[in-house]
Design a protein around this nucleic acid. Sequence first.
RNA 1: GCAGGAAUGGUGGAAUGGUAGACACGGGGGACUUAAAAUCCCCUGGCCUUUGCGGGCUGUGUGGGUUCGAGUCCCAUUUCCUGUACCA
Length: 918
Amino acid sequence: MADYNHNDIESRWQQYWRDNGVFKTEIKKDRPKYYVLDMFPYPSGAGLHVGHPLGYIASDIYSRYKRQQGFNVLHPMGYDAYGLPAEQYAIQTGQHPEKTTNANIERYRSQLDKIGFSFDWSREVRTCDPKYYKWTQWAFMQMFNHYYDTKLGKARPISELIAHLEKHGTEGLNAAETKEITLTADQWNAMTEKEQRETLMNWRIAFQGETMVNWCPELGTVLANDEVSEGLSVRGGFPVEQKLMRQWCLRVSAYAPRLLDDLNDLAWSDSLKETQRNWIGRSEGAEMKFPVKDSDLELEIFTTRADTVFGVTFMVLAPESEYVRLLTTPAQKDAVEAYLNEVKHKTERERQIDKKVTGVFTGAYAINPLSGKEIPIWVSDYVLAGYGTGAIMAVPAHDSRDYSFAKKFNLPIIPLIEGADVSEESFDAKEGIVCNSCGPDLDLNGLTVKEAIAKTKKHISEKGIGRVKVNYRLRDAIFSRQRYWGEPFPVYYKDGIAYLMDESALPLLLPEVSSYLPTADGEPPLGRAENWKTPEGYPIELCTMPGFAGSSAYYLRYMDPHNEEALVSKEADEYWRDVDLYVGGAEHATGHLIYSRFWNKFLYDLGLVVSPEPFKKLVNQGMIQGRTNFVYRIKGTNTFVSKGLIDKYDTMPIRVDVNIVSNDILDQDAFKAWRPDFADAEFILEDGKYVCGYAVEKMSKSMFNVVNPDDIVEKYGADTLRLYEMFLGPVEQSKPWDTNGIDGVNRFLRKLWNIFSKRTDAERSAQEKKIMHTLIKKVSQDIENFSFNTSVAAFMIAVNELSKLPSVSVESMDEFARLIAPFAPHIAEEFWHELGHDGSVSDSEWPKWEEEALKEDTVKYPVQFNGKMRFNIEVPAGSDKAAVETAVLADPAAEKWLEGKTPKKVIVVPGRIVNIVL
RNA sequence: GCAGGAAUGGUGGAAUGGUAGACACGGGGGACUUAAAAUCCCCUGGCCUUUGCGGGCUGUGUGGGUUCGAGUCCCAUUUCCUGUACCA
C-alpha cells in the first residue's frame, strides 16, 4: 500500500457515501430506532470555525456507533436560517437576506461535508423555506385556536371555552388567563363580535397582550429577555428600554407546572435541569388581601413568608400597577406622577446600574388583616409588575430590599425572630423562633418559622383573608418581532381585530420589500410590502415571528420532512417518537430548550405527537475558546522581542494571526508577509527562535485566533480533525483550541496505516487477541459514557502495542476498522474495502469483546503496609482471600516490612489490593 | 446575592475509595542519514540520597474530618468559570 494520503482517501469515500446514499434513512419497523440530533446552526457569514463541529463530531460518533449496533439511526441536519445578522446585512447592503442566507448555507454545507459526517441530507430543513415555515405558521394557528384548561392540565379547543361562556359565563371556568375576568353568560352573549374576540385574547394560548417589552430603538424591534444582557441587546450591544406594546404572546406560563415536573424524567445534566427549574421558578406561598383604609379596594399580595405578616410596616406597589392610579390621594398626586415619569424613562440598563432606592408615598393606607394596624402604601420600582400581583407587603426586618427601603424613608422595622439583630441589616434566613407576632385571632409566638408559615396559611384560608398559592417566575413568551426576516403571521385585521387566515392560505409567503428598515411612521418593514392584504382587502399583520418559532419543532419535521399534509405523519411520529440524544450548547437552557418543550407539550395535548417530551437525553458540549498569540514590539520601533526577553525592554503586546505561529514559535517570514507595516520587522530572538505569548479569549476574527476546519482538513485530514477534537478533552468541557498536539493524533493514524499495510493472514496470537479485545471493551464502554477522549487514548495504546508485535493479523485489522469507523470513518472505510468487504463500514457489525480473551493466568496485587505502597506480588488467578493473604505473608519481601511483628489485620480486596495493618 | 460546575506536572488531560499523573503535546538524550525531514528507542512532578543498580521522602487550591487506605466521600474555606438577578 502507498503512504497514508488523507486527501485522496477522504474525498474518495465522501464521494462513495454520496453516490450510494449510504446515510439515507427510512422507517424500518423491524429495527429499533435511535434519533441523534444536533442543535442546527445559524448560518453566519463568518463560516464555521474549528469550535463549531465539536458537538457534531461527538454526535456523529455516537450515531455511527448506534448504527453499527443495529439501530436504525436518524441523524439529520439543517439550518436555523432566520436571524438578525442577515437582516442587518440586508439593511446595510440592500441585499435580500435570503440571498445572503443561501450563500452562507452553501458555505456551511461544504465545510461540513469535508469533515465526513453521516447526516441524512435528504431530510435537511431550513426554517426560512416556505415548505417548512408553513408548519410554523400552522402551529401558531393551533395555539390561537386553543386555551389551557388548568383543571385537566392540557390545551383544549377555544370552541369549548366559547360554549362554556355562552352557557355559564366565567363561572366554573378553569382556564389559564392573562388576568382575572368575571362575566355572566348574559354579559358574554350581549357582547359584540369585536368585544368577544378581544375578550378571548385573555385565554388563547397564542394571544395578543399589552406587555412591557424590551424595546431596542436601534434595532427597531422587541427583544426577548434572553436576547438582552445587562440592558444591552446581545446582538449589536445597543441600549434597551421598557415600553408597553400590544404584542403576540405564547402562554408558556400555563405549562410551567408540567415543564417543571417532567424535568425529573429527563436524562439531562443536573446543572441544566437546575437552570430550568430556577427559570421556571416555582415558589409556594400565600396570596393575601389587605383592605385599603376608607375604600372598598383590597390590595392582593403574594408572599412566601406568611409568618412575617405581623412585621409588615408598609406596602409597596409596582409603578405599573393599576392600583397606583386608584389609590393616590389628591395631595400626593403630583409627587406620584413625577415619580412614575422618572421610572418610565429609565432604561433597563439605568435601572440595573444605579441601584439607588427610590419611591414615593401614595397617601393611602392599608389595614393589616391580622394585626388590624394601619400601614402606608408606597410605590417603588423595586417591585415588579410582572411577578405575583405587582404589590407586596414589606417586612423590612426580614427582607433586605424592604430593609433598605425602610431605612431610606424612615419606616419602622419590627424584628419577628428571637435574637435577630436588625440594627445593621435585615435577617433574611428562614429560620428561628417567632416573636412579636400576636394578634386578636392568631398567635405565632414561640413557633419555628416553618410552623408559623403553616399556621398562618391555615388561618388566612379559613378566615377568607387569603389562600395558599403557587407562583411561577416563568413568563409568557413574546412572539412578535418588528422585523422583516422571519415567518409572517397568518393573521389579518378587520376593524382592528385579529382574525386567522384560512389554513388553505398557508404557507403565507414573506413578501418582497423595497427596504429592510422600519417605515417612516415606525411600522415594521412589512409595512413597505405592496399589496400586503387579503383578497378581501384586509391588512395583514406586519410583525414576523421570532427566531425560536422555527426552531421549536424542527426535530419533528426531520421525521417526515417532505410531508405536505402534516407537520409529521402519524406513522413517522409513532416510529421516531422523540430525540434519544440531543447535543448542543448550554446557552439554550432557558430559551430554545424551554420553548421546544412547551411547543411539544402543546402538540402532545392535541394528540399530534406521542411523546410528552422532545429530548430524552441531552449533552451540552463545551465551548471552544480561542487561543490568541502575542508578539511584543518595542514601543515606537518595528523591532519585536521574544517573550522570554520582554522584561528587558519597554514593549507592547500585539495580537498575531495564530495561523503563522506553531507551538508558540513565530514564523518570521510569514509574519513579515502578514501585514505590510511588518514587512521590515526585526526580531530579537532567544535560542534562535521567536517565542510568542498567549492568552485564552473568545474565538473571533478581531483576535486573529480563528482556526478554520478547512485548513486543518487540508493539512491533516478530516479523520485527524475528528480524533483530535475528541482527544482535546471531555466533550462537555469548555477549552481553548490549541493546534499544538494535533501531530500526535496524525502520527497515530499513520502508524495504524503502516500496521495495516503489514497485516498477515496468519492466525493471531492470544496476546494479539487480548490487545484487541481490551480495546473493544474499553471503546464500547467509553462511547456509552460519552468519554471520547479516553477512547482515542485507548486506540493509541492498542496501536503502540500492536506495532511491537512481529505481525498483525487480518482478523485484528478487520476489528480495528469497525471500531474506529465512528471516529475516523474515512480510513476505516479504506481498510474495510482493502479487506475485501462490500458496502460501507458504517453498516458493519460493532465488534463484541470476549471476556475469555481478557483472562490472565495470574493476578497482580499491590501490597501496602498501613496504606503505604510497598511491593507487588503475583498469585494464580482465582485465588481466594485466604490464599492471597498466605501468599503475601510468605513472600520474602514482606519480612522487611513486617519487622518481625504480627499484622493486626490483613485486608484483601479481591482483584485490587492487599493492605497489611501493623 | 443566589444556583450549578471546576481546581491534578511546563501544557491538554487520565484515574469503579485501592501503586496519582494513563494517553498526547512540549522538552532532553540517542539510533538511522553526507545532511535534513520522516521514523524508531530511552528519559521527563518536586526534593533528597547513591560511583552505579537503586533507595527514601513529598506531592492532586487551603484547613479539618471519616477510613486499614482519600485526587475521589463529609465539613469549612479560597479562587476561577457558567447561568441568573430586585421573583417578595
